[in-house]
Every structure is written in C-alpha cells, then in structure tokens.
C-alpha cells in the first residue's frame, strides 16, 4: 500500500505529468473558446434581431425610414435565386458526378484532369465567379442584372461542391449492388438509374441541401453582377432585377443609423432561420440514410 501511494505521489508531482495535464487543459480551453465564440455571436445577434422580426418586417419593402423597412423583396429574391440555381445545378452536378464515378475509365488522363480541375474550382474565391458571371451572363449573353444571370452565376459557384458531395455519396454505394445488377443482365445506365442512384439519393440530397445553403448565404458574386439593394416590387419572372437577404443585410449594416443596424440584425435572424430549416432537413435525411 505504502509503495503504491509513493509511486502515485511521484508520478503526480512529476514535471512531465504536470505539463501533460496543462496541455490537455489548454486544448480543452481552445475548443471551449470556439464554442463560446459561436454562442456569444449568435446570442448577441438574436437578442437584437428577434425584436425586429414581425409580420410587418416580413411583408414590407425596404424603406428610407428604418422602422418601416422590411425584407419581403429580399426573401423572395433569395428564394428565386436559390430555386433556379437548384433547378440548373442539381441535374448538371449529379450527372457530372455520375460520369466521374460510374463511367470513369481507370488511369484516364481526361477524367483525372476534370477531377483536379473541380477541386481547383472549389478553391476559387466567390467574387471571381461574380466577375465571370458579369462578363458571361450579364454582358455577353445579354441577360442583364436579372435573377437568371444571378442564378447561373451561383450555379457555376456551387457546381464544384455539388459534384464533390454527389461523388462521395456514389462512392458509398457498395460495389456488390452494382455487380448483382450487371449479373442480372442490366446495362450500365440501368444499373445507375435503378440501383446506384436510388441508394445514393439520401447522401446526394444532403450534399445538395448544404450546397444550396451556401448559395443562400453568398452575396459577393451577386453584388459583382449588379444585384441592387433597393427593390420595391416583387420579382415576377427570371428577367426581373432582384436583391437577396445577404445583400440587404450588407446594405443595412453599412449604414450609420442604429435603426438600420437593428433591421440588419432582424434580417440576419430571418436568414439564419432559413439556413437552420435547410440544415435540419439535411440532418433528417442523413439519419434516414443511415437506417
């Protein structure tokens, strides 16, 4: 007994042991710091913003008087842009992922090149996509500063992400399913259409929702292509001019009046609520996929 006690005493007073525990404590502290930052940030925004959110705020257009300003045009604009982006980006992204995963030829230089190119594109700053969209869609294609031009720009921006997440989902489908399907005489496309895509679907959906939430929060490329901040009518088609929630937040935050900054907090609450709904959907889908 005495011997055990002494040994423990020796280890505990050991410099190395103290250092080790100290380091563990510092590591824990840094994680706690990250979590604390998150909570503090969200709390500060919510406590200011939640009081600003009302039915009047949600159904009014922007105004010069902060108390009357609302986010109706911005919410509708965001929904339009994300909707069209989804319609264009999902089929293209999934088809590209199918090509890279299911039709890939081993050691093909072209497939390798496309793959490297996609990961490079994922690292290009969003504002550079804005410059591309400005030249390509707004000026060359003559779409003007419209919802369509914005959505197509967003499509190019999120496409690498959609492709990468869809590839991950396709990779997770067991090889045996494909082999069984080929064994029954199905062609490659039949195998993809009736076996691989259905089993990869929840994973693909999760990835797509996360990509679309990125599109909802993104504003720099849309500012570059010329989305405006003051819109006093509801967009009715893809050729209308538009604004989105993040741009509205940007505009209100950069004004000196306290009233507009509170309106910005309100708009942030609305934006985060939309993101939260989308992310919960993704989590539910992921849980379903695991069953």
């Amino acid at each position: 007994m005495n011997f055990l006690f002494l040994r423990r005493l020796r280890t505990r007073s050991n410099k190395r042991w103290v250092k080790d525990k100290l380091f563990e404590f510092i590591c824990q502290l840094s994680v706690l710091l990250a979590v604390a930052i998150l909570i503090a940030l969200l709390w500060s925004v919510f406590s200011t913003g939640i009081g600003r959110v009302s039915s009047q705020f949600l159904t009014s257009f922007p105004s010069r008087i902060p108390q009357n300003a609302g986010v109706k045009a911005a919410i509708l604009g965001s929904l339009w842009v994300v909707g069209i982006t989804g319609i264009v980006a999902i089929p293209i992204g999934v088809a590209a992922a199918v090509y890279l995963e299911e039709y890939k030829i081993r050691d093909s230089k072209l497939t390798d090149f496309i793959q490297i190119n996609i990961s490079n594109l994922a690292g290009v700053p969003s504002i550079v996509y804005g410059l591309l969209g400005l030249e390509l869609f707004v000026r060359l294609a003559g779409l003007g500063r419209s919802i369509l031009a914005g959505s197509l720009t967003m499509t190019l921006l999120i496409l690498p992400m959609v492709i990468i997440v869809s590839q991950e989902a396709l990779k997770a489908v067991p090889r045996t399913i494909r082999e069984a399907s080929y064994g029954l005489g199905a062609t490659r496309w039949q195998t993809i259409r009736y076996q691989v895509l259905p089993s990869a679907l929840p994973g693909i959906m999760t990835g797509i929702i996360l990509s679309l939430s990125r599109a909802i929060g993104e504003s720099a490329p849309l500012i570059t292509i010329g989305a405006v901040t003051y819109i006093s009518s509801i967009p009715e088609g893809v050729n209308d001019r538009f604004t989105v929630l993040p741009i509205q937040i940007f505009d209100w935050s950069s004004r000196p009046q306290k009233g507009f900054q509170d309106a910005a907090a309100g708009a942030i609450v609305v934006l985060l609520a939309i993101l939260l709904i989308m992310n919960s959907l993704a989590i539910i889908l992921r849980a379903r996929a695991r069953r």
Binding site: A95, A96, L131, L132, E135, L136
Partner: peptide, 30 residues
C-alpha cells in the same frame, strides 16, 4: 439500348466538361 447508353454517357460527360469550360471562362474573362 447501346445507342441510348452512349447518349447518356455523352450527356454525363458534357456536364462534367462544364467544369473545364468554367475554368477556361474564368481565365479568358480575367
């Protein structure tokens, strides 16, 4: 069946090629 298979394969390839066109577009525009 084979013809439609080839067509679908080409369609998928075209979608993947958009990523290369995007890169070319960025470089050209800039």
């Amino acid at each position: 069946r084979l013809r439609s298979e080839k067509f679908i394969r080409f369609l998928c390839f075209a979608c993947a090629a958009i990523s290369i066109l995007t890169t070319i577009g960025i470089v050209l525009v800039l």
